[in-house]
Design a protein around this nucleic acid. Structure first.
Length: 596
RNA sequence: GGGGGUGUAGUUGAGUUGGUUACAACGCCGCCCUGUCACGGCGGAGGCCGAGGGUUCGAGUCCCUUCACUCCCGCCA
């Protein structure tokens, strides 16, 4: 007898009443009544109830041996459940299988944790037994969403003349950026490949090659510390196009997102997304990826406190710092002293030396830790600048501009979440444009590329770069796509003009020779007829996270690693044998204990 | 590298100001049960309280160290 199924466990309905079928799946639950035995048979498609009657003694005997998660074959007849026995919770709830043959194909040890969801199981157990964790409904659903997203994207890009081209995983270590994972070469002693942090140089060279619309669902690797939304290996929807500018690029991705959200979530998002200048984002939200699902804008207060004698404000202003406020309406009663203490701690993580808060009372007075330094005049001007009044709260940070923005921008999200201001059903897309091209690092005394050194300046600012004047004011032709405060994609137009590229290296303090040395093959490639081009990379994992409504990247990956970068299931990274090391011409130099 | 959280049967949790034999639910094992779908009933097994050290007459509980998982800062052009 062939052990094959005729149907899946999510398939049968009253329409198949009377048919003889064979089902195979996992025993999700057994309900043994001594006489009749019920088994819920599960596969990824659903659950079907099996009924084993004692009138089939062999089947009945076998059914009594079934335990949770045994793999079972059953053969029998579909029949409508007796009156009133329908289970509305199951798509197959109208029917059951009256079986004449039961066969245990595979036994299972008792599981280390239940398959049903409900109680959260500890992360380390889930990761160690990931193949069992993956049986659970949430991960089954999330991986399906991930697959569907990839399908919709591939479909859409194919319709728009994009070619999917694979690029190497064993590639060259490139300076700058994140740390590389490296792979030793046996054939070339003492040399190493690096795993790509992204296919950036490769996709640009594909433009040189004339593949004017390229995409790839690309695996990327970065040897940096992990976060809830960061794994050492992750996937990008990597895209590059020739003969375009932003006005060609944006609509393509707006259309792609529209299709993804329609098909996966049946949500209609706008035809075109709002755009915001980087400067405006920083001014109003303190971050370059604002969550625009709620208001709560920051207010600059430097002018208000210009003549203040309060030391915190005075020293911040004297050292060229930034004083900003986060006005929160009608919140005075909602924050306890403990909340405020938590917030002070919270902003401390961003390097803020302190957090001031003021509660505006009905009698016109203001309370808070440093309220006594405010004279009535200050209070009037504060109210005027922030629009606050009785019952409102104002958080203030006075620090270096970067710290003030970081801390207050993050506090904004925390406060909004706490006050329930965030409409979680919304999907707010936002293009952020007008990023600075270069940033001066005082400690090194040199300029750095904010994005990467092949990012084009915006056309209006090209002259400035070529003449090397006013570098800090140059805007990049770079753009991020932000969804609900998460950066889901980033990209830019690239430099294709040799003069501009040389100017860029000059600005970074690099001669053409040094640049050639550093970026060699890539620079050379760009000299053989490079079309104007630009592109984007979508964080595939983050996009799927948002589609699934989860905050953890592990929930949308089949086999993720722990925060220390370990795979608890296979127990890697692991040591390799001395023979393997010798073959790779590698000797380890480390404390004996660590090598054990 | 730094800061926070968590760690008690297989699992998820409770465990008072330090005080007899560490508790519950689910799971597991056995027996009973012919219409359940969170099946039900009776009985049972199961613990170095993450690990190590300390304080104490006495530690799951207090202190120190350490490990694991996790969240955040740094880092991620």
């Amino acid at each position: 007898m062939r052990r094959v199924r005729t149907h899946t466990c999510g398939q049968l309905t009253a329409k198949e009443d009377g048919q003889t079928v064979t089902l195979m799946g996992w025993a999700h639950k057994r309900r043994d009544h001594g006489g009749v035995v019920f088994v819920d048979l599960r596969d990824r498609y659903g659950l079907t109830q099996i009924v084993v009657d004692p009138s089939f003694p062999d089947a009945h005997k076998e059914a009594e041996k079934i335990r949770n998660e045994y793999v079972v074959l059953v053969h029998g007849k579909v029949r409508k459940r007796p009156g009133g026995m329908t289970n509305a919770k199951l798509s197959t709830g109208e029917i059951e299988i009256n079986v004449d043959h039961v066969e245990i194909l595979s036994e299972s040890k008792p599981l280390p944790f239940p398959i049903e969801e409900g109680n959260e199981v500890s992360e380390s157990l889930r990761l160690k037994y990931r193949y069992l964790d993956l049986r659970r409904p949430n991960l089954q659903r999330n991986l399906r969403v991930r697959h569907q997203t990839a399908q919709v994207v591939r479909n859409y890009l194919d319709r728009h003349q994009f070619l999917e081209i694979e690029t190497p995983i064993l590639y060259k270590s490139t300076p700058e950026g994140a740390r590389d994972f490296v792979v030793p070469s046996r054939v070339n002693p003492g040399t190493f490949y690096a795993l790509p942090q992204s296919p950036q140089t490769l996709k640009q060279l594909l433009m040189v090659a004339g593949f004017d619309r390229y995409y790839q669902l690309a695996r990327c690797f970065r040897d940096e510390d992990l976060r809830a939304d960061r794994q050492p290996e992750f996937s990008q929807i990597d895209i590059e196009m020739s003969f375009v500018d932003e006005e060609v690029i944006f609509p393509i991705f707006e259309g792609m997102m529209k299709e993804v959200f329609k098909q996966i979530l049946n949500v209609d998002i706008p035809e075109h997304f709002q755009r915001m200048d980087y400067d405006v984002a920083m001014r109003d939200y303190g971050v370059d990826k604002p969550d625009t699902r709620f208001e709560l804008k920051l207010v600059e207060l430097n002018k208000i406190f210009e003549g203040s004698e309060f030391n915190v404000f005075k020293s911040a202003l004297q050292s060229g710092g930034l004083i900003k406020g986060l006005p929160v309406k009608a919140a005075a009663e909602k924050f306890s002293r403990k909340d405020m203490d938590d917030y002070v701690k919270f902003v401390g993580a961003y390097g803020a030396k302190g957090l001031l808060w003021y509660k505006f009372a009905a009698d016109g007075t203001v309370s808070g830790p440093a309220a006594k330094f405010l004279n009535p005049d200050d209070i009037a001007r504060l109210k005027n600048a922030t629009g606050l009044d009785a019952g409102d709260v104002l958080f203030v940070i006075a620090d270096q501009a970067r710290v003030t923005n970081d801390a207050l921008g993050s506090l904004r999200l925390k406060v909004a979440d706490r006050l329930g201001l965030i409409d979680k059903t919304k999907f707010n897309f936002l293009w952020v444009t007008g990023f600075p091209l270069l940033q001066f690092e005082p400690s090194d005394g040199r300029w750095y590329a904010c994005h990467h050194p092949f990012t084009s300046p915006s056309p209006d600012d090209t002259e400035k770069l070529v003449s090397g004047k006013d570098l800090g004011s140059i805007r990049a032709a770079a753009y991020d796509l932000v969804l609900n405060g998460t950066e889901v994609a980033g990209g830019s137009l690239r430099i294709y003009n040799q003069k501009v590229q040389s100017a860029m290296f000059r600005a970074l303090g690099m001669s053409d020779e040094e640049a050639k040395d550093k970026f060699g093959f890539f620079i050379e490639g760009l000299q053989y007829g490079t079309p104007p081009h630009g592109g984007m990379a979508f964080g595939m994992d983050r996009l799927v996270m948002l589609l699934c409504g989860t905050d953890a990247i592990r929930e949308v990956m089949a086999f993720p690693k722990t925060q220390r970068g370990q795979d608890l299931m296979s127990e890697c990274p692991s040591h390799i044998s001395p023979e393997q090391l010798a073959e790779l011409h590698i000797s380890l130099r480390m404390p004996k204990k660590a090598a054990e």
